[in-house]
Design a protein around this nucleic acid. Structure first.
Lengths: 134, 134
DNA sequence: TTACTAAATGATAATCATCATCAATTAACA
DNA sequence: TGTTAATTGATGATGATTATCATTTAGTAA
C-alpha cells in the first residue's frame, strides 16, 4: 500500500560524522565537523558533511541549531534544552536552565500563529574569552 | 582631550531607511528593506542599506535580530521583547509574551559564561501560511 | 558469492547573503 | 560659498550553503 520507502543506507561517512558529533559537548559548525571527520576519513567531501547533517537533523537524530552568528551549528543531544552563545568567539554550549513550558501556553494565547515550539538563547562571554581579555 | 568624534551625517538614505522600517510591524531583511526603500530612492545601493542598518543597530536606534533562517532581520522597536518566526515563510513578528527576567538570573548560576542577555524565539505557522495550506 | 540497482559520495560549480573597496558625491560648518 | 571628511553607488570579494552529476557502494535477491 505504501510507496516504497526510500532506503537510508548506513554508510561509513554517516557513522563517523555522528560519532564525532557525539564526542564533543560543544556545538560544531558543518566545517568544524568536516575538519574533525577528515582526520579519520581524509577523502570525505564537505558536501557529504552538509548533506548528512541536514538528513540527520530532519530525521530527528540530531539537532540543528540556528542561533545568532552566520553558521548553523549541530548538537547530538536532542532532548529539549537551551543554549548559550559566546558573543566574542561564537562558541555555543548547552545551558542547564530548566525549560519554561508555560512560555508556549502564553504564546498560544497572544498570537495568531499556530505555535510549534520555542527556544531560548542566552548571550555571554565564555570563560576562554574572559581570560583572553586580560 | 577627546579625539574628534567622527561626524554622523543625516542623509536622505538614512532617514528613508529608518522611516520604511518604522512603517512595518514585520521584521524585514536587508534586501526586503532595499526593495521598500527603492520605491522612494530608486538609485540607492544595496550596500548602503546594509551599511546603515548595521550602523543604526550599533548605535541602538534599531534592533538587529539574528534568529533562525539565513538572513538577519531588523526591528524599529528597541525595548526588550520576544519574537516568533514562521517556519514556512520565514516571516518574523513580535510576540506579546512578558519577558522572563528570572531566566538571566538562573543562567548566571548555572554557567561559567559572563551572561549578557537572552532572547526567546517561538516557532510556528503564521496565519497567511495556515490559510495557504488549505 | 555475485550481480543488480537505487542511494550516496566526492568534486565542482552555482547561489545567496554579506562585506570590502574606491572614485565620485554631498552634508555640515567655517 | 568653499573645504573636507563622511557617505554613497557600483562593483568585486568572501564565506556559507546548496545543486549537479558522473562514479562508487550498501543492501538485497538470485
Amino acid at each position: 500500500m505504501n510507496a516504497p520507502a526510500s532506503m537510508i543506507r548506513l554508510t561509513t561517512q554517516r557513522q563517523i560524522i555522528l560519532e564525532e558529533l557525539s564526542k564533543v559537548t560543544s556545538h560544531p559548525t558543518a566545517s568544524e565537523l568536516y575538519d574533525m571527520v577528515r582526520k579519520r576519513l581524509p577523502r570525505i567531501g564537505l558536501g557529504t558533511v552538509y548533506r548528512n547533517l541536514e538528513l540527520m537533523a530532519e530525521s530527528g537524530m540530531i539537532l540543528k541549531i540556528e542561533v545568532g552568528g552566520t553558521q548553523k551549528r549541530f548538537d547530538a543531544t536532542t532532548d529539549e534544552h537551551y543554549h548559550i552563545r559566546c558573543s566574542v568567539c561564537g562558541r555555543v554550549d548547552d545551558i542547564d536552565v530548566p525549560v519554561v513550558k508555560e512560555l508556549v501556553a502564553q504564546a498560544k494565547e497572544s498570537s495568531a500563529y499556530m505555535i510549534q515550539g520555542h527556544h531560548v538563547e542566552f548571550t555571554g562571554i565564555c570563560s576562554d574569552c574572559q581570560k583572553k581579555q586580560h
